[in-house]
Design a protein around this nucleic acid. Sequence first.
DNA 1: CTAGTAAGTCCGGAATCTGGACTCACCATA
DNA 2: TATGGTGAGTCCAGATTCCGGACTTACTAG
Lengths: 147, 147
Amino acid sequence: MTAVSSQPRACSVARTLDIVGEKWALLAVREVFLGNRTFDEMVRRTGAPRDTLAARLRTLTGAGILERRQYCEHPARFEYHLTAAGRDLYPVIVTLMRWGDRYLAGDDGPPLVLQHRCGHQVLAQVVCQACGEPLEARDTRALIPGG
Amino acid sequence: MTAVSSQPRACSVARTLDIVGEKWALLAVREVFLGNRTFDEMVRRTGAPRDTLAARLRTLTGAGILERRQYCEHPARFEYHLTAAGRDLYPVIVTLMRWGDRYLAGDDGPPLVLQHRCGHQVLAQVVCQACGEPLEARDTRALIPGG
DNA sequence: CTAGTAAGTCCGGAATCTGGACTCACCATA
DNA sequence: TATGGTGAGTCCAGATTCCGGACTTACTAG
């Protein structure tokens, strides 16, 4: 069988977006990063329809990104916490944020600034872990393992 | 006026996702990064419905992320190219890819590997541009400018 | 003359998203 | 004791999007 080559590409970007690319999903995760862990708080901060947010939180907990913890029995109250996998989404969120800061911020500048413990404003930079150089598309080449 | 605080958060992540967070948008951008610039090629590689892809390409060119260039007059043929803003989405794509490689790759490992010109496999790492330390959520603090 | 490619558009049905109302359980306050 | 508020959802009907597939137009290759 010669390769069909017309199959959609198997790709980690696509797989990741299947989980995290639905509307409101990453904004829910953003809120948890910012410390807003309860359902109602997330509704307020994101503006997502309650229905949709509930569905996203189910997907995200199902995918092992968030964990739903009960912190009060009567009445039942829950908090969402990041798992290790969820914390590893931080790079995705800060790179999205940086792009928006650069290309979509108005005259007022970015609406939210992160401060690093080093004292400076966080400017997320993506580097090659091996050599430490900033990553740019033109410096990379795609290989298909076993292809 | 005491803050209403119930407005959805003004946020660069949200703004960016408004453009780039629709289904198939980032996969179209991924294909352009991989050198597949024509409409039909993108349809084949992403698996997106032609209709939807056409809409996304309009959004992306409208947002200044892609540029539509005619490379043949008769018959009319077009290629999509990244603008500077589009190239700056590379960090978003490689961080998504890295997350997927880590959490969603099967036994076969990642379906696509990027090689850096330094010779190593690209492992995207996000660092604080100021101090060079790898970025983690717990090392950062959110501030609302003028808030 | 038939096939194939490129770049879409058009269509009707399916799936999702949306805002708003509603529920249930509890607490506070007057 | 009635009123209102919070938290965590669910339910619904209507609007919007998404989907696959067929179709179009303009050309080239055999």
